[in-house]
Design a binder for these strands. Structure first.
Length: 422
RNA sequence: AGAGAGGUGGCCGAGUGGCUUAAGGCGCACGCUUGGAAAGCGUGUAUACUUCACGGUAUCGAGGGUUCGAAUCCCUUCCUCUCUGCCA
């Protein structure tokens, strides 16, 4: 969430930039500032009451110590009023603080200056593209047909075992997926990211830390017996590594990477656009997460973009990069670039990576700080991105690399698969 | 799952009702010392809110309670560790 002090000091700018999301935040901003004023007033009153009460208690203690019990008893009677007052003020203060926090949860991050105003994906700007769209042979198939033809992914079997959205990868399909995971992790660790194996179930506090709660409760699988959530992305356990952490400035920057399955309920999504591997309840993803000094976070962001570009170039897959407009940028992000892979056989773009700079929005919820050169604790910036989401990359490889007599394996993956054709 | 122990500052760790204003150590910063370093010595070093400032308030896992006063006593709850059980 945003810091109230920031909202107060940059009121006009915050409203102006939130307008990029096509929301008029004027009322929310005004309310936040006035709630904070009221909170401060209550805090001051409570502090003063407690100060007097504490003084009195000390006097009583001294009187007892010097054997003046009767004088102490007189003072004791005066404490009742203080108790009553501080209780009442404390209750009001808590209510006011809670009201403010709930409001702040509802205010999304302020988009970066370069982000365009816009409503939906229609308004996203394409800022880069690379790779030739292959000319496929007559009768080229979409990946779900290829999966059946070569017997490498079995959707019906997944339906039986779990339900729709839980495909079973078999033989060379399973091996290819494993090869991709290993290749991505190697690329990331070679670029300086530290590999983590993270929990796939997380507690409620972690979900609040990265903002899945309270906003997106319906998206997550939840085990009510132990009150744990299946992770929708490695971002959740990966970013919560840094919850309640105070770093030294010299610890920065930090980069971690992890492979995890991801689980999403995706309620209400049916139809042709979610066919095959396009949208699943369980899928694999390799994630990169960075913790950066605020002065360096956009440079780091560019570095992450370059890193993902490098992977896609090595895989020789055609893709484009979109800078999301305000309305399409995720709630906690200040800027997001989406990578989309062109699926030739489906004739459509598939999102395979989303790289975001959250600036201090997540760090504020997480209480992720570092001690800066002035000795002050300052919120760090967090970033994350996929490198990459597996099923759609797999779909893109199957579709774009198909030939009449089999599917070729991208050259960089052959050392990992041990075969060059399916 | 059963029994027991425990959660204290950046970290470790003492602390059973009032000079706890949280001992001591480690780490870190600065200084002395040194040809330079290490060691040694000295000084400083929690977080949040609030105040122009002095200062004030809160915080010893969390939430309640007892008390004039709680890290300390009571209740509830979460978490961790040890042993036993179960198990890849």
């Amino acid at each position: 969430m945003l810091q109230v002090a920031f909202i107060r000091d940059h009121k006009e700018d915050v409203i102006k930039r939130l307008a990029k999301r096509n929301i008029d935040a004027t009322q929310m901003i005004e309310d936040a500032i006035s709630l904070d004023e009221e909170r401060k007033q209550l805090q001051t009153n409570l502090d003063n009451t407690l100060a007097e009460s504490n003084t009195l208690s000390k006097e009583i203690g001294m009187l007892y110590k010097s054997g003046k019990a009767s004088e102490a008893n007189v003072l004791k009677e005066k404490t009742a009023q203080f108790k009553e007052d501080s209780k009442a003020l404390g209750d009001k203060l808590n209510a006011k603080s809670e009201e403010l926090t709930q409001l702040l949860y509802k205010i999304p991050n302020v988009p970066h200056e370069s982000v365009a105003k816009g409503n939906s994906e229609e308004d996203n700007e394409e800022i880069y593209s690379e790779g030739d769209i292959p000319k496929l042979h007559e009768g080229a198939l979409p990946h779900w047909e290829l999966a059946k033809k070569y017997d490498i992914i079995d959707f019906e079997l997944g339906n039986k075992i779990a339900g729709a959205g839980f495909p079973v990868y078999k033989g060379k399909g399973a091996k290819l997926q494993r090869a991709l995971i290993a290749y991505f992790l190697d690329k990331n660790t070679n670029a300086g990211y530290t590999e983590y194996q993270l929990p796939l179930l997380v507690n409620e506090a972690s979900c609040y830390g990265t903002g899945q709660l309270p906003d997106k409760e319906g998206q997550m699988y939840h085990d009510s017996r132990d009150d744990l959530y299946l992770i929708p992305t490695a971002e959740v356990p990966g970013t919560n590594v840094f919850r309640d952490v105070l770093l030294a400035e010299t610890d920065l920057p930090i980069g971690i990477t992890g492979y995890t399955p991801c689980f999403r309920r995706e309620a209400g999504s049916y139809g042709a656009h979610v066919r095959g591997l396009n949208r699943l309840h369980q899928f694999d993803k390799v994630e990169i997460i960075r913790v950066e000094h605020p002065n360096n976070s956009y440079k780091a962001f560019d570095g992450m973009i370059a890193h993902v570009k490098d992977i896609l170039a090595e895989l020789k897959l055609p893709y484009r990069i979109l800078r999301l407009c305000g309305g399409d940028t995720g709630f906690p992000a200040a800027m997001t670039y989406d990578f989309e892979l062109f699926s030739t056989a489906q004739d459509r773009w598939l999102e395979i990576s989303s790289v975001s700079n959250f600036e201090s929005y997540q760090a504020n919820r997480l209480r992720l700080r570092f001690k800066n050169s002035n000795g002050k604790n300052e919120l760090a910036h967090t970033l994350n991105g996929s490198s990459l989401a597996l099923p759609r990359v797999l779909a893109g490889i199957l579709e774009n690399y198909q030939t009449e007599d089999g599917i070729n394996i991208p050259e960089v993956l052959i050392p990992y698969t041990g075969f060059d054709k399916i």
